[in-house]
């Protein structure tokens, strides 16, 4: 046994053999340092490449640090909205829920809303605070008329793009569009958040319209399979106050491939910068 011990301890340098619980031979140590450097460089490069290759989520904000107040007329068709003197704002609740229930007793009246602003390229939305709705005092009310629907197109045109949920897309989740976000978008729409359309080519004043099907904004269950996928549909653009709408013909919705055109991200870049 003693000759065995002499023979093999320590491992001869010309015949390096690695055993986990013994000191590592020099050759193995050098190799490991090399491998660790290689992996580190590759990881650094990979993170940089992947971060840089991400598509821009667009210019959108969700100002959760600053509670704001709005005054105006609350309406419920086609979706809970606050009509102020300046604009028409969609109103949603906290979480993935529409504001129908929270606002139920107040529709048709002048109210004061407290909440947080979501905003994308000038398109604004109110996220209502938990107890953020009060009737306006009679003496404070400045009367606002209910806006009328204004058709921008007589004949329907064909639009290509993606159905998304308005809250995520206007800033609650960035990116709030795309296939990876699909389950979230569907959950949001099921919760009563407004469906919007991100068209691949769009003019400035009708960016991200609210989708209206048969006069209402709630997306029917059978259309959920189209959410966050590239689709084509026949629709007429319209406006309610300052809010752009899209009156979609249900039967015209058709799924295209899932791959989006890069034109949209270019559009976002040019629109923002």
């Amino acid at each position: 046994m003693s000759s065995d011990a002499k023979d093999s301890k320590p491992p001869q340098s010309n015949d390096p053999f690695y055993v986990g619980y013994l000191p590592a031979p020099r050759k193995h140590r050098t190799a490991m340092i090399f491998v660790i450097c290689l992996i580190s460089i590759w990881a650094l490069l990979a993170s940089l490449l992947i971060v840089l290759s991400q598509r821009s989520p667009g210019f959108a904000t969700w100002d959760i640090s600053n509670e704001q107040t709005w005054n105006g007329l609350l309406i419920n068709t086609p979706y809970p909205m606050l009509v102020t003197k300046e604009e028409t704002l969609l109103v949603v609740s906290m979480g993935k829920a529409g504001a129908h229930q929270q606002l139920e007793p107040f529709f048709g009246t002048h109210v004061k809303l407290m909440g947080y602003e979501l905003q994308r390229e000038g398109r604004r939305m109110i996220e209502l605070s938990p107890d953020g709705v009060r009737p306006q005092l009679i003496q404070d009310v400045i009367h606002i008329d209910k806006p009328e629907l204004e058709l921008l197109e007589e004949e329907p045109s064909i639009y290509t793009g993606e159905i998304i949920d308005g809250k995520c897309f206007l800033g609650a989740m960035k990116p709030g569009d795309g296939f990876a976000h699909r389950s979230c978008a569907i959950l949001c729409l099921k919760g009563g958040l407004p469906p919007m359309f991100v068209a691949e080519q769009d003019s400035d004043e009708t960016l991200y319209p609210l989708i209206i099907i048969d006069g209402v904004a709630e997306l029917p269950e059978q259309l959920h399979t189209y959410v966050a996928c590239r689709i084509e549909c026949k629709a007429r653009k319209a406006k309610l106050g300052t809010l752009p709408l899209m009156l979609v013909e249900v039967d015209s919705i058709r799924a295209l491939t899932n791959m989006p055109k890069s034109s949209r991200s270019q559009l976002i870049e040019t629109a923002g910068g």
Binding site: K96, S183, C184, C188, G191, H224, T225, V227, C229, A255
Partner: peptide, 18 residues
């Protein structure tokens, strides 16, 4: 943050997609 079971909301998306 929704009205459904989070696991099913993500895993059991409506058909028609991968």
């Amino acid at each position: 943050f929704g009205t459904e079971n989070p696991v099913l909301a993500v895993l059991d998306a409506p058909p028609g997609s991968v």
